[in-house]
Nucleic acid binder design. Structure first.
Lengths: 158, 158
DNA sequence: GTCGCTGCAAAGTCTTTGCAGAGAG
DNA sequence: CTCTCTGCAAAGACTTTGCAGCGAC
């Protein structure tokens, strides 16, 4: 019973933290905190998925129809969030760009080429090896991304 | 000292071989071998670089102005080559999609976020680890791609 | 000669931008 | 009150498609 409460509180606190970071970022750049920006951040946080600008926009329209949020605002906010490194984007195949909150710990991606679903993983051996390679080749590594393409468990059954 | 190999100048496949594969592929699918298709393949081979459809088209226009190759043909041929897995594409950041011949052996990418240049590397430890992870998670791995973003040696001097 | 290919231009997508009114600070 | 944000629609950038003539086989 206490576990459930704790989980809930952890998530709430995490979001508050995220929201605070966002507000601070806005303030620092003389930008304004608007309901649209909050809703976009919140949706990214709650869904915890890789979303295209379009799917994010659809979700927001469905959940907050009164706001009538424009797709342009979604694009503008995602660019803002990406620039300030609060979200990261992932582009693959013909399927375009997908965004996810980047505040979580780093991870790499499995991408199913049939259903388009994305699973995440982290492997410390690979992380370590990447750092070494960059160092050996005199490359100043800022970031990296890794995708494994294939067929997920579900789609293998079909 | 290390098992990292770079393959900037490693043309493992002869052009004739490549061309034959291409011709065979076309024949098998009842497609025709045209001068435009040959020039596109040849340019990809000779440049041995990651090219956007646009830059590839520019190069061809400059080198074979009489052909007056259309950008549509470049797109169509790249799609054809990608479908048949003779080239692979790499998309990153806002810079769009780049294509390279995929007949060479597999490699991963360093991408310089300043000058946009791409260097290649292979690390057997990482390759091995990827295979293991896919297997453990029941993922049928078909391909993978890894990019390390950062600042290349040249741009660090500036 | 047949049927796929090509260049062109038009049409699609996806993303960005200009603008005038709305809203945060 | 000021100055940024927003939705809208128009404009851009990139890619695909329809078509009529061309060219490989």
């Amino acid at each position: 019973m206490s576990n459930i409460t704790t989980d809930f509180n952890d998530k709430t606190i995490e979001y508050k933290q995220l929201l605070d970071d966002f507000k601070q970022l806005l303030k620092k750049n003389n930008l304004k905190f608007t309901i649209q920006r909050e809703v976009i951040l919140e949706t990214l946080y709650n869904l915890d998925e890789h979303l295209t600008p379009e799917s994010l926009h659809n979700l927001i329209q469905k959940k907050f129809p009164d706001l009538n949020t424009g797709i342009a605002t979604v694009y503008r906010t995602l660019s803002l969030l990406e620039e300030s490194e609060m979200v990261t984007s992932l582009s693959f195949g013909a399927q375009g760009k997908k965004y996810e909150l980047g505040a979580k710990h780093h991870h790499d991606h499995f991408i199913c080429t049939i259903c388009g679903s994305i699973a995440e993983f982290v492997d410390e051996q690979i992380e370590e090896r990447q750092r070494k390679i960059a160092q050996e080749l005199g490359f100043d590594m800022k970031d990296h991304s890794m995708q494994i393409y294939g067929i997920c468990k579900n789609c293998q059954k079909i």
